[in-house]
Design a protein around this nucleic acid. Structure first.
Lengths: 245, 245
DNA sequence: CGCATATTATTGTCCGACAATCAGACAGGC
DNA sequence: GCCTGTCTGATTGTCGGACAATAATATGCG
């Protein structure tokens, strides 16, 4: 009949107060936060309490430090911070490679389509550069995987849609380990990827949304085929060791 | 030429140490964390430092408290906690309703397809229940919006893919305010939604993946039409007030 | 056994302290 | 003029201890 009357510890209300100010843009990106002592004075709490609140904001990526710096600044959550959170959540939800693949399969064609429609010349060049880098690289599994991820990320950027950019990152992060195995074990993988990237770049250059989407669909299907040829069980959980030395 | 040599404060290394144990499943979900004093003793740091580390874990959703409880337990990040983080990130990235819509358009058909292929009887019933609830409700904009979100969430659950489940939440959260406006201003919106949900439920029941995807595509397109009819500019930023009292 | 009550443990918050170090001012040497 | 070293103050990271509120647990009683 009655709900528990809400009590929230000070550190929580504090972090919410500051978070709201950031979301409301009253504290703008790049702006330095007041010092801990100052915050403690203004909110009339102890500095320890302030620090607990700041740690919360810090790990949501709303505030951060410049390299080697001491003061905290208002930042917008980066791809990396968002991706880290989401991918660790997915890891704990017993996500399997097939789940990630399915999501990729569902979302990437849409990204390719959007990228083809809206890519800027600069974004196109970035994308093409990624493809070239992948194609030009022999050996070295790890860098190849990075290049593939960069390609997808560049495509996300080209779509000029922050939703795609941020959704891409965690998926790629979870994909990487299994992709490394595929590149190792499937000889023709590099060639297939190279070819797909080439066609996608061309379609994006020509602003041909449907061709971009089609090739991306094919590209994604190739990954699935890669799992089979590399004999990675589709039910392998992501974030687990795949037995690669 | 030289990289900065990495130093990390103790509270950070501490939170990473605990996080790793959780990701590695050495600390299992539902298990109680040691008390702050105990952690301080084991890691040989001060309790304040432990508390800062715990606040970080808390806001990544890796540890949490049972309602009214005092001790911390290992938890897996919920839809809500992930969704909150992602949607606040998107808000700060100046995401517009059209961006969210585009992502929805890209991903929902895939979810519908997956749901049709794999739905359990229980998940189907859940989904149907959401559709019924929406259809049976007259007036009350807020509940209607919730019902629509519940429908999408139920579909995500039915897909049995944690990636879809977790990706859905933030998109819906950002969609809600504008959806409320649409339902308010577009008389035929409820009918269109009702009809689309009905067709999707039927297709999912019949395990007809393509029909489910097709109807979802239509459903998503309707939303876009809704924006136009409700004269919500597509470039409206999400997380901003839409001028609804 | 179930239930009220007393004990203990644990968290939330505060205070004060100190070393490390970052930022800026300032002076000296090339 | 620019680089280098030095000094000073401000700020963060960490520590120790303290205490009230209350959740968790044990205790006693019917």
């Amino acid at each position: 009949m009655f709900e528990p009357l809400g009590y929230a510890p000070a550190y929580l209300r504090l972090s919410e107060a500051i978070r709201d100010r950031i979301l409301r843009r009253e504290l703008k990106e790049g702006q330095a936060l007041p010092t801990e002592t100052e915050l403690a004075r203004q909110f009339e709490v102890n500095r320890s309490t302030v620090r607990e609140a700041l740690r919360k904001l810090e790990s949501s990526g709303l505030v951060g430090r410049r390299a080697g710096g001491k003061r905290l600044f208002v930042t917008r959550p980066t791809r990396e911070s968002v991706g880290g959170g989401l991918s660790q959540a997915l890891t704990l939800h017993e996500t399997r490679v097939v789940d990630v693949w399915e999501a990729l399969q569902a979302v990437q064609p849409g990204i390719a389509r959007a990228a083809a429609l809206r890519r800027s010349p600069e974004a196109l060049e970035q994308l093409a550069a990624c493809a070239r880098r992948f194609a030009g690289r022999r050996g070295d599994r790890e860098s190849a995987v990075e290049d593939v991820a960069d390609f997808f990320n560049a495509l996300g950027e080209a779509s000029d849609n922050p939703v795609f950019v941020l959704l891409n990152e965690p998926l790629l992060r979870l994909l990487k380990p299994s992709l490394a195995v595929i590149i190792d074990r499937v000889p023709q993988a590099r060639g297939r990827i190279e070819s797909a990237q080439k066609h996608i770049v061309d379609a994006v250059r020509d602003r041909d949304a449907e061709t971009a989407a089609t090739w991306m669909t094919r590209h994604a299907r190739d990954f699935r085929r890669g799992y089979e040829v590399a004999s990675i069980p589709l039910s392998t959980e992501v974030g687990q060791d795949l037995g690669v030395a």
